[in-house]
Design a protein around this nucleic acid. Structure first.
Lengths: 225, 225
DNA sequence: CTTCAATTATTAAAATTTTCATAGCGGAAT
DNA sequence: ATTCCGCTATGAAAATTTTAATAATTGAAG
């Protein structure tokens, strides 16, 4: 899960990035309105943390831009003033939550997770990646309209890849995501190789292209070309 | 996991109980110093949320009592005034965290989870239940000093039972704890029955008494007598 | 005390996950 | 280009988990 943090106060920005990184998010940050616009233009994130007061523009306009570009990620507005109007405006133009400074980092973390959880449950209950369609509610997967059967691990793998399409995913991340904190460094990745192999076989056998690229020495990347 | 909330403000107490219950904790509450003393005398909780200002006494004395009774649970002090002295005193006499009112419930939730996580990692890395000894770090289990081998699910089950010894655990809770949010109501509990059976067999076969009592219509209870 | 329906236990088979041994590949160094 | 070493792939066995069918038990009701 990738998060963009838009905040001009240096220390707070640094704290947020380091806390959220520890929690397992991939974080990028922007220091100003224009830097944020640039990043939003290049990449789509899973969640945006937007400060209202920014050099070069207001966070509310940023939210509008994110929405205009049809980004699907959640948006949390952060503001120093607990003004009820700001809150209302923020929620009206499409942010998902509103947080008043000062706040605890664990609070921000909880809200981000809550938004991501909410999104994956509600509304967004159908994911399409070229000829692959996934219905997360029922854990069903279709290729070119025909349902295929995946085991639990294969399904989890596939969803993780699609959720992170285009990104290189290190094997450690895969292990952590699918198996939790169990395994320490010493463990081998044999089981990942096996599940990857099985997933590849099933997908290709059922008519999908082979999107799953090996990134030597690192992990894998799920990508169209 | 069972939590005792000691707070005299009715609305806040109600909010905390309802929020934390939704998060999967078993909650009890006390409205006053004396009620808290009573509950602490009867039962040992996994975490205590203690307000400083209470009718009949101070939360700091309550913390001392909890410690005197050798309770192992974590302690979070909650206070209206952000006095640094209170905080220091609180941490000195053995509380694990300090929270200033007003706070978000998700913040309290995060801190409780953090304390419980910390405790199960650090220090408390050996659990003894009569002739059964568990080393959570290495996931090893000994009976009368002899190591026995359990599968992942059997181990998780055993640890969950020991962590909740003496309590009746509904089958739903077991399913939720060991398998996450996967299964909806419609699912049967066949796999629980099977794992229970296997765990029982292994424990008894290796020389432990049968502590695992069936509670008809509800679930199970792990208990000495 | 019986009967009955619902709940839990047991057993065995099926499916999945993990491990292990071995083969193939990538890329750096010679 | 060749060699080599570490990384990844593959196939098959072993272990675990889940499912399914059947038996035993519980507690309520007659």
């Amino acid at each position: 899960m990738k998060i963009l943090i838009i905040e001009d106060e240096k220390e707070l920005r640094y704290d947020m990035v380091s806390y959220l990184s520890q929690e397992g998010f991939l974080c990028e940050s922007a220091r100003s309105f224009s830097e944020a616009i640039d990043k939003i233009g290049v990449y789509e994130y899973d969640c945006y943390v937007v400060d209202i007061m920014l050099p070069g523009g207001t966070g509310l306009d940023l939210v509008k831009t994110i929405k205009e570009q049809k980004h699907q990620g959640g948006i949390i507005i952060v503001s120093a003033k607990n003004s009820i109007e700001d809150k209302i405006v923020g929620l009206e133009i499409g942010s998902d939550d509103y947080l008043t400074k000062p706040f605890h980092l664990s609070e921000l973390n909880a809200r981000i997770k809550s938004i991501i959880r909410r999104r994956s449950f509600n509304g967004n209950n159908e994911i399409q990646f070229n000829e692959i369609r996934v219905l997360p509610d029922s854990r069903q997967v279709y290729i070119n309209g025909k349902e295929i059967s995946l085991t639990a691990k294969e399904y989890d793998l596939l969803l993780f890849f699609i959720a992170n399409k285009g990104r290189v995913i290190p094997k450690d991340s895969i292990a952590e995501h699918l198996w939790g904190d169990y395994m320490d460094q010493a463990d081998s990745f044999d089981f990942i190789y096996t599940h990857i192999k099985n997933l590849r076989r099933k997908l290709v056998q059922q008519g999908a292209k082979d999107y799953l690229n090996t990134v030597y020495g690192i992990g894998y990347k799920f990508q169209s070309e």
